[in-house]
Design a protein around this nucleic acid. Structure first.
Lengths: 224, 224
DNA sequence: ACCTGAACACCGTTCAAGT
DNA sequence: ACCTGAACACCGTTCAAGT
């Protein structure tokens, strides 16, 4: 074994680092990603990573952006963009599916796009789509924000998984209405899906109401 | 200075630890809370904490629950509970205010109540209130879940703060609709508040639609 | 340019020792 | 019962040294 300090062909690349980091986070969670562990997975020593990224946070940013890049945005492509409701619905479903595939990454995404290109692309597409559909700029901004609240919230905090599967944890004297709460854990997927669908429908119904009111009044009160 | 191993009166208590930990997290963020730092703040050595909590995570759980305990639940007290919409609205506003006061704690709360008593009290109150107001159990569960999605999502990821205050970050060639995005940072509070209010109104309007439909059809299709 | 080992200043947690 | 210092197995990051 010769201790070669620099190989003729680089052992690492940004892409390979991000890919391996993403796989590790998906498999074992954010806490499992240390620079040493990641380096070991890449067959390299810890400090080597710093030749390609300035900090561990930069690596995590890249992992997060790779997930954002999987969100379908094609529904905002239509040049007329009239049917904003269908577009918003399909986007929300695709958005949530992308996050659900990588639940451990959601906390990284929840704080906004920052300087991540794919995250910015998402914000750009939904804002552009809503404006084209006739929403005033201020409302289009709100829609991008509130949809993100709802979707990342639902992906981050699986409601059902947030309860422990242990009947003894729910003393009827303390929580008179949680007698069935321990069942939530096993029905987790159905409950979270039902809540997401119910909430998304309510959100879109409510926005449709605001759209009609706005169009009738030509957005006099709230446009900016 | 005598090196006393055990004082006659305990130096620590669970309450004092949680209070100091919460203050530290509020002031400097989650990353600033190490067991050694917290112990120093309490005038004590690191391992002392383990006489009162089994792990650091247990301390964080208690900090999170203290925030949940500040959420107003009195709107679900009324024995008739007919006006579910007003109750839900007021609860959402109080919920969000509690989280906004402790933004660094939100990630700890986002994963659900677990075994935290105050978190379970919240889930119990909203579920009970909705059922009393006439919602079927399944829908009441969904409402608790989707409201939490929206509220924690909005508290966790301030939309506006998620954009950097740097015009150069938004190349028009890449993001044709984000020309004003750098302004979001300074208008942060107004944007987040507007998005929250718009989303909450839409959510409640949409749920009212589903309530009316359900009552008319006596929840035949979706009750369980 | 790109990798290495050694080193620095940290972590959470355990444990025997003190009173 | 409740605190202590020492210790273990970790961290992220810097840096001089190698090729």
């Amino acid at each position: 074994m010769c201790a070669m300090a620099r190989p003729r062909k680089p052992l690492l690349s940004r892409d390979r680092i991000v890919e391996t980091a993403g796989a590790l986070v998906d498999a074992e969670g954010l806490a499992a990603l240390s620079t040493r562990r990641l380096a070991a997975e890449l067959g390299v020593s810890g400090p080597s990573l710093y030749n390609h990224f300035r900090t561990k946070d930069e690596i995590l940013d890249a992992v997060a952006d790779a997930v954002s890049a999987k969100i379908d945005l094609s529904m905002f492509d239509e040049t007329d963009g009239r049917d904003w409701r269908t577009a918003l619905h399909d986007w929300a479903v695709s958005y949530r599916a992308a996050l659900a595939d990588h639940p451990h990454v959601v906390p990284l995404l929840a704080h906004g796009p920052g300087r991540r290109p794919a995250g910015l692309k998402v914000a750009d597409a939904v804002f552009g789509g809503m404006v084209r559909a006739g929403w005033p700029a201020a409302q289009a901004t709100y829609i991008g924000a509130l949809m993100r609240y709802f979707i990342t919230g639902s992906a981050l905090g699986s409601f059902a998984r947030g309860f422990v599967d242990d009947e003894a944890a729910y003393d009827p004297a303390d929580y008179p209405h949680l007698g069935q709460a321990h069942l939530l854990a096993e029905r987790q997927e159905k409950v979270d899906e039902g809540a997401f669908e119910t909430g998304l429908r309510a959100l879109l119904d409510g926005l449709a109401l605001q759209y009609e009111t706005g169009v009738r009044g030509q957005w006099t009160a709230r446009s900016s």
